[in-house]
Nucleic acid binder design. Structure first.
Lengths: 221, 221
DNA sequence: ACTCTAATCGAACGATCGTTCGTACGTCAA
DNA sequence: TTGACGTACGAACGATCGTTCGATTAGAGT
């Protein structure tokens, strides 16, 4: 990213766009870049020096905004969650509850993945894969994100049952797993192959997916 | 890890247990540790100093085996592929072609994931997620692995059609995608939740999966 | 006994990491 | 005007990174 040169001369007037970008707006600019780097190369590869260079400020100046790398990582996840919520969850809730909302959820998620295809695709799939074996606050934050994603999908499916769009005895937990696995796998395969036909396949899978029944025959074994 | 000094010769016990673990066996020992680190923390977190400490040799001595970090990464992927082949692919081919082989493939894969649960689960899912946005020999090697995994599954499904276990007009490519997405998503969710019930859900999904038909209605849109 | 080679070592290099410290500039309240 | 505060800076720290170099072994081949 091109950024105004540091203007090393001490007496030069600072009419640059920076220098008056106080507080919150600088922080937002930092996190915009942090999301990109973290999604593409991982939350560990998100180094403070690299991030500072990218947004055109000093390591120390950037560091002061967060106090530690761990805080920066968590702030980055929070920021990514805001994006996910505004690009996937909120547009989904704008559709009528039930089957339309389920289809909308998948479409908005796929649009989200494609929109960020060059930045690592789904932020939370990448973060989950990176931190699933670790411990500490960062992993906990990642875990919470996935849990919230699952809970949202559970609610959508529950509404679909209540609206009569799915059979009354639908096993919502099982169906939620199937859809989570489907979209997660779709994201991973799309990131690797970069072939939009994968989304067509996923849509077709959802259309043909038989609603699993509660306490049917699948309980044993 | 036990060194198991070969001590093939009648010579007196060497001062250090190492020193006679020549060539291939040292290399194998290095790659055993490298697979663990790379699967758990990522191929980039696989640092030479850390790896050298883990196997009890010097950075320079270990480095000499590979010549560059990139070569080490590729050798680690090759080693992980050998494990995947011997633990998943070869046991699968021991089952009769067709539907039994398809079920065996999934079971052997799940056993593989569980066996390496503490080491990051499926090596190739983790590697794909880490390198899907990069370029270079390492990404190419990861890509090749996933392509071979898909091709193997394609063959299993093709055999199942030929054996009459799946309808003649089964869309093998579509079904292969659905199963790849299913097992990939299953691995990711299991790594995060560490709940073996997830495998039960995945088995149930496969049992209930309707074989997609070729040139049905999914082509449009 | 001699040489040759493979394997391994310690030491060091430049780079980058996360972090700390002291300082300077700007704005705003007193 | 003064002082406090928020913001950002340069410099430096110890640690670790990948890599290079030269020296030191042990064993094989002659």
């Amino acid at each position: 990213m091109k950024r105004t040169p540091p203007a090393k001369t001490s007496k030069a007037p600072p009419p640059t766009d920076r220098r008056r970008a106080h507080g919150a707006s600088t922080r937002r600019e930092i996190l915009d870049a942090a999301r990109r780097i973290a999604a593409a190369d991982g939350l560990e590869a998100l180094s403070i020096g690299r991030l500072a260079t990218e947004v055109g400020m000093s390591k120390a100046g950037l560091f002061a905004h967060f106090g530690s790398k761990e805080s920066l990582q968590i702030a980055t996840i929070d920021s990514a969650w805001d994006v996910y919520r505004s690009e996937v969850l909120e547009p989904t809730t704008a559709s009528p509850p039930g089957a339309p909302q389920l289809r909308a959820y998948m479409e908005h998620y796929f649009e989200y993945v494609q929109r960020h295809a060059m930045d690592g695709g789904c932020f939370f799939t990448a973060a989950s894969s990176e931190f699933d074996d670790r411990t500490g606050p960062v992993r906990d934050r990642v875990f919470k994100s996935t849990a919230e994603r699952s809970a949202f999908l559970d609610n959508v499916l529950h509404d679909a049952v209540a609206a009569g769009h799915l059979p009354k005895n639908t096993d919502v937990a099982q169906m939620s797993f199937e859809i989570m696995a489907l979209v997660t796998g779709t994201n991973l395969l799309f990131q690797l192959y970069k072939d939009p036909q994968i989304f067509q396949r996923a849509r077709r899978t959802l259309r043909a997916m038989p609603p699993p029944k509660r306490s049917s025959k699948g309980a044993a074994d």
